[in-house]
Simulated scan of single mutants.
Amino acid sequence: MQTIKLREEFIKLGQVLKAGGLVDSGVDAKFVIQDGLVKVNHEVEYQRGKKLVAGDIVEYNGEQIKIEK
């Protein structure tokens, strides 16, 4: 499981996928999220702009990223 440290109060879901190297671009993030392939805290998430905070876990394509403060 990868971790991403927050620099601010939150980070958006699309940014997490890019920062974690799970997608190559914001456009790719948009499509995998719209297609229902991404989970946040074990539930499918369809909002690319979903604000994630410390403790949230993102899952995509067999990979997981935990958000830390």
Score class of each variant (00 low, 15 high):
Gln2Asn: 11
Ile4Ser: 06
Ile4Asn: 08
Ile4Lys: 07
Leu6Asp: 05
Leu6Glu: 05
Leu6Phe: 05
Arg7Cys: 10
Arg7Thr: 15
Glu8Trp: 08
Glu9Gln: 14
Glu9Ser: 14
Ile11His: 03
Ile11Arg: 06
Ile11Cys: 04
Leu13Gly: 03
Leu13Cys: 09
Gly14Tyr: 14
Gly14Arg: 12
Gln15Asp: 15
Val16Cys: 02
Val16Lys: 00
Val16Tyr: 01
Val16Met: 03
Leu17Ala: 07
Leu17Asn: 03
Leu17Pro: 02
Lys18Ile: 11
Ala19Gln: 14
Ala19Thr: 13
Gly20Leu: 02
Gly21Phe: 05
Gly21Gln: 07
Leu22Met: 11
Leu22Ile: 00
Val23Thr: 00
Val23Glu: 06
Asp24Trp: 02
Asp24Cys: 11
Asp24Thr: 12
Ser25Asn: 07
Gly26Trp: 01
Val27Trp: 11
Val27Thr: 15
Ala29His: 08
Ala29Ser: 12
Phe31Pro: 01
Val32His: 08
Val32Tyr: 05
Ile33Gln: 06
Ile33Lys: 04
Gln34Glu: 15
Leu37Trp: 10
Val38Thr: 00
Val38Pro: 00
Lys39His: 09
Asn41Gln: 02
Asn41Ala: 02
Asn41Glu: 07
His42Gly: 12
Val44Pro: 06
Val44Thr: 15
Val44Ala: 11
Glu45Asn: 10
Tyr46Ile: 10
Arg48Ile: 15
Arg48Gly: 15
Lys50His: 11
Lys50Tyr: 10
Lys51Asp: 09
Lys51His: 11
Lys51Ile: 06
Leu52Asp: 04
Leu52Ile: 05
Leu52Lys: 00
Leu52Ala: 03
Val53Lys: 15
Val53Pro: 09
Ala54Asp: 12
Ala54Leu: 05
Gly55Glu: 07
Gly55Pro: 05
Gly55Lys: 07
Gly55Trp: 04
Asp56Met: 02
Asp56Ala: 03
Asp56Arg: 03
Asp56Gln: 02
Asp56Tyr: 00
Ile57Arg: 13
Val58Asn: 07
Tyr60Gly: 01
Asn61Ile: 00
Gly62Pro: 03
Gly62Lys: 06
Gly62Thr: 05
Gln64Ile: 08
Ile65Pro: 02
Lys66Glu: 14
Lys66Ile: 04
Ile67Met: 08
Ile67Leu: 10
Ile67Trp: 03
Glu68Tyr: 00
Glu68Lys: 11
Glu68Ala: 10
